[in-house]
Design a protein around this nucleic acid. Structure first.
Length: 424
RNA sequence: GGAGGGGUGGCUGAGUGGCCGAAAGCGCUGGUCUUGAAAACCAGAGUCGGGGCAACUCGACCGUGGGUUCGACUCCCACCCCCUCCGCCA
């Protein structure tokens, strides 16, 4: 959400800079509502002042045993008038709020301009793609052949876009989670958190999933709870409506959680395999930063996510998303894309963003400067990493001609010494 | 789910219709004193929004949202959260 003052004083600038990113925003309606709201606010405050003085007068008269009927009658009229205007103010305020919560964040000036993913800019690549002497198989064929991945039974117990991992497959997923958490807590200074996997409406609004993207979420029928689509939601909202001290910053959290997404509108995309699931595991990184440090923090956070891929020896590249490809709340985003031999391309495995004060303003997360002034802080987050997609990358990049899969060295301690997954 | 108790400033905690943005204590900030510190004493300090170059000024905020009233921290209703006991449960 943007500063209300920006809406009032710089609406044209905002509209121009957002361009196609906010094509669905009724700008002229916003302008009218914002003006109406200011006007009514001034009126109400003036009337309240009258009422306050008048009521004090009544109190004084009564104490002095003087008649107060005339003042009481006048104040009654003022009170009625206030109620009337307050009602209109409430409507205008709701209207502004409703639209304001649906205006996306402004891209940082370093973000490349562009309409879609084709305009994203490659920042760097790491590792060398494996030169396989055979035609690489997709991970679902590898996993099913090894008896560690089962989509058929998953469909029976849940439906499409679910998977069952068994044996060393389940073990590998668990190993990855532990490896990632250990790395971030011991080497990158993140504090481990195990949050609730469902949250309330306010939390979802705080990070920007609501009100605009409700159809992407799983919602409980009898309670106003939503399954989290990412640990970003509980972690960022941990400090909702709080004022932290300047000395505490940066605050950095990491958490493993399952993530639940309806994937509405992605019919036909990645229908096979683990790439796009209704439920998947992710280790998330979240940081709270002073505004002046947040872009430095974004580089550090991205590097922390990259460290996982490097530790596992998986080739990847870093893309700076262009304005048209960025998410609703982000001011700047780097995607990490891992190499998938079967698709002969890089696929997203992590998304690292700086939200600046966009989420902090929605969620009311501030910090107190040394001079005593309160200010919204900046929030950041990134996947470190999407666990299921990491497992995909290991299966595909580690596959051998005989159908077995070599496990990265770094995971051996987490796999009870297993170096290779073979049949049986 | 049932019964009862409770949500007030950084914390503890008073306040049961007007003189309450809110006592008192603790903590905090500045000062006096002291070689320094402590103690003591004095002074100061909430958050958000509007107006003003500024000094300043106006409004809102005592869990949340409604209601009663000239006037609500105080009365009424609904909801949320916390605590105790019972029930159920991993």
């Amino acid at each position: 959400m943007h500063d209300q003052r920006l809406l009032r004083e710089n609406l044209d600038m905002l509209k121009a800079q957002l361009g196609a990113r906010a094509a669905d925003v009724p700008w002229e309606g916003v302008r009218t509502l914002v003006q109406e709201r200011s006007r009514l606010m001034v009126q109400v405050e003036e009337l309240r002042h009258q009422l306050k003085k008048g009521s004090e007068e009544v109190g004084r008269l009564k104490r002095e045993k003087q008649p107060a009927d005339e003042t009481m009658a006048r104040m009654k009229a003022v009170g009625d008038r206030i109620k009337e205007i307050e009602e209109r103010l409430r409507l205008a305020d709701d209207g502004v709020q409703q639209v304001a919560l649906r205006i996306p964040n402004l891209p940082h000036q370093s973000v490349p301009a562009g309409p879609d993913a084709t305009a994203n800019v490659e920042m760097r690549t790491w590792g060398t793609t494996p030169a396989l002497a055979f035609t690489p198989k997709p991970h679902w064929e590898i996993g099913e052949a090894l008896g560690i991945l089962d989509f058929e039974r998953a469909a029976r117990i849940a439906g499409a876009r679910f998977a069952v991992l068994t044996g060393l497959g389940a073990r590998l997923e668990r190993a990855l989670i532990n490896y990632m958490l250990d790395l971030h807590t011991s080497r990158h200074g993140y504090r481990e958190v195990l949050p609730p996997f469902m949250v309330n409406r306010d939390a979802m609004t705080g990070t920007g999933q609501l009100p605009k993207f409700e159809e992407d979420l799983f919602k409980l029928r009898d309670d106003d709870y939503f399954l989290i689509p990412t640990a970003e939601v509980p972690l960022t909202n941990l400090h909702r409506e709080e004022v932290v001290t300047e000395a505490q910053l940066p605050i950095k959290y990491t958490a493993y959680t399952p993530c639940f997404r309806r994937e509405a509108g992605s019919y036909g995309k990645d229908t096979r395999g683990l790439i796009r699931q209704h439920q998947f595991n992710k280790v998330e990184l979240v940081a709270f930063s002073k505004p002046e440090d947040s872009y430095e923090e974004l580089e550090r956070l991205t590097a922390a996510a990259e460290a996982v891929l490097q530790g596992l020896g998986l080739p990847y590249r870093v893309m700076a998303l262009c304005s048209g490809d960025m998410g609703f709340s982000a001011a700047k985003t780097y995607d990490l894309e891992v190499w998938l031999p079967s698709q002969n391309t890089f696929r997203e495995i992590s998304s690292c963003s700086n939200f600046e004060a966009f989420q902090a303003r929605r969620a009311g997360i501030r910090f107190r400067r040394a001079d005593g002034k309160n200010e919204f802080l900046h929030t950041l987050n990134g996947s470190g990493l999407a666990v299921g997609r990491t497992l995909v990358a290991i299966l595909e990049n580690g596959q051998q001609a005989d159908g077995s899969v070599v496990i990265p060295e770094a995971l051996k301690p987490y796999m009870g010494g297993v170096e290779r997954i073979g049949k049986g």
